[in-house]
């Protein structure tokens, strides 16, 4: 891929976006942000990002619904998605995506807060540019 990869962060928590943005921009990646699901979908269509980081729990439209809509849109379905949540990855909380009928690979699922290095590894993996 030429140039900086463009990453869309969709999260309702402005502070969390801020810290994530700082880490990603330092890499450097191009970061665009959206504060809720619908806005995220719109930005995805307009900006055609290389990766979308999607918060699960958001008011109005939650991350799973947004992800389902992304996967249905032929223009957007190829964009990799990382799901983020403040829920603990252990126990019943991880059963939420399953109960919604939405299957996610473990690489696509990150628990908040995310260590900067873990975030970067996940992003690189998702972009298909893991150095190995």
């Amino acid at each position: 891929m030429e140039g900086k990869a463009k990453i869309l962060i969709v999260d309702d928590d402005a502070d969390f976006i801020e810290s994530t943005r700082i880490i990603l921009e330092a890499k450097p990646y191009d970061v665009i942000i959206a504060n809720q699901g619908d806005e995220g979908l719109q930005k995805a269509r307009d900006e055609n990002p290389d990766l979308i980081i999607l918060d699960v729990i958001m008011p109005v439209k939650d991350g799973f619904t947004a992800a389902e809509q992304l996967k249905k849109d032929p223009k957007l379905s190829k964009i990799p998605v990382i799901m983020l949540t403040a829920f603990s990855a252990k126990g019943g909380e991880t059963s939420i995506p399953r109960s919604r009928g939405y299957t996610l690979d473990t690489e696509d699922y990150l628990e908040k807060p995310v260590q900067p290095q873990n975030l970067l590894v996940a992003v690189e993996k998702a972009l298909g540019r893991t150095s190995s």
Binding site: D15, F16, K112, P113
Partner: peptide, 14 residues
């Protein structure tokens, strides 16, 4: 309960 702590943790790690 976790959301604000997560935001704080994010800034601390940054």
């Amino acid at each position: 309960l976790k959301a604000p702590l997560t935001a704080i943790q994010g800034f601390l790690w940054v």
